[in-house]
């Protein structure tokens, strides 16, 4: 017998020999979702865009809806989302994802349609399209990734930039007098009649990521009910433009951003049977 075959990693097998051997078997408990394309992502180290891509793709895989899902990519760092998500996607003009999603969903009401947008895209140039899509109660999911700066164009001030926060276009810190206060988009959307589920989550810790994934899962499931728009704001980071390490950026989300943008559900469907297994009835 060739010896190589017996060279096993120590941690893999623990065999206590006797007349009967007890062996610990390892099972896979976590891996990259198959719906996420196996390529290097262009995002900076520690950027949560790729993390949120992964979460959405996990939900698509868990629900087994790859064949029925159409995503709309924005303009911004995540413009290449279609390179990483293994689903049919359309790349929208800057800010227009909600309108494009409307076009897709109206013609294919039984498909799952979501938009993936940043704060520059959704909260600045695209706020009009977003408000109207939510007000009409389009049965889509809007994933709003809020990292308080324009990432791709290298860190300019966004509508969600915190008061006093320094960016390349607010070098002395954002001034409320000059540029107003950050827009609380999720609260704004919750005011609209067509909004069905509005929540603000983050990805700053493993548990926060779990909560975000749960919210995404719920939102995808709600689409089948055809009761209105689901809007998930995710507080995210931009280590490169915040000039922080990824770890510092996660702390900044918890300690600073969450003060301006309180986390949690803002509008939840009235009748939820939370005890029902496998989703919402």
């Amino acid at each position: 017998m060739p010896t190589e075959e017996l060279l096993l990693p120590e941690t893999t097998v623990t065999a206590s020999c006797g007349a009967e051997c007890a062996i610990e078997t390892y099972e896979e408990v976590y891996r990259k979702p198959a719906t996420l394309v196996d390529v290097n992502m262009h995002y900076c180290p520690g950027c949560a865009h790729s993390l949120i891509h992964k979460l959405i793709m996990e939900v698509v895989e868990d629900m087994d809806i790859q064949e029925k899902t159409i995503g709309i990519a924005p303009v911004g760092c995540s413009v290449f989302a279609y390179d990483y998500m293994d689903i049919d996607m359309q790349e929208a003009a800057h800010g227009r994802a909600a309108a494009v999603a409307t076009g897709v969903k109206r013609l294919m009401p039984d498909k799952y349609v979501f938009t993936y947008q940043g704060d520059g895209d959704l909260a600045a140039i695209g706020i009009g399209e977003t408000i109207h899509a939510v007000n009409r109660g389009e049965n889509i999911l809007i994933v709003f990734v809020n990292n308080a700066v324009y990432g791709m164009t290298s860190g300019q001030m966004a509508p969600t930039t915190l008061n006093g926060m320094k960016t390349t276009t607010s070098p002395n810190g954002r001034s409320a007098e000059l540029t107003g206060l950050p827009i609380k988009v999720a609260e704004l959307m919750a005011q609209l009649g067509g909004a069905y589920f509005v929540t603000r989550q983050t990805i700053s810790s493993p548990n926060a990521v779990r909560r975000t994934k749960k919210a995404l899962l719920q939102a995808f499931q709600y689409q089948t009910l055809k009761k209105g728009t689901c809007f998930i704001e995710i507080l995210s980071n931009c280590p490169s433009n915040w000039k922080m390490t990824p770890i510092e950026s996660m702390k900044f989300i918890d300690e600073e951003m969450a003060k301006t943008f309180p986390l949690g559900d803002i509008k939840v469907p009235v009748t939820i049977n939370t005890k029902t297994e496998g989703g919402i009835q």
Partner: peptide, 19 residues
């Protein structure tokens, strides 16, 4: 559909045509 603007309507056309 009556869109909220011409900007929105042309992008809805984009979505529908893309599908």
């Amino acid at each position: 559909m009556q869109a909220e603007s011409e900007v929105a309507s042309i992008n809805m056309v984009y979505g529908a045509a893309g599908a």
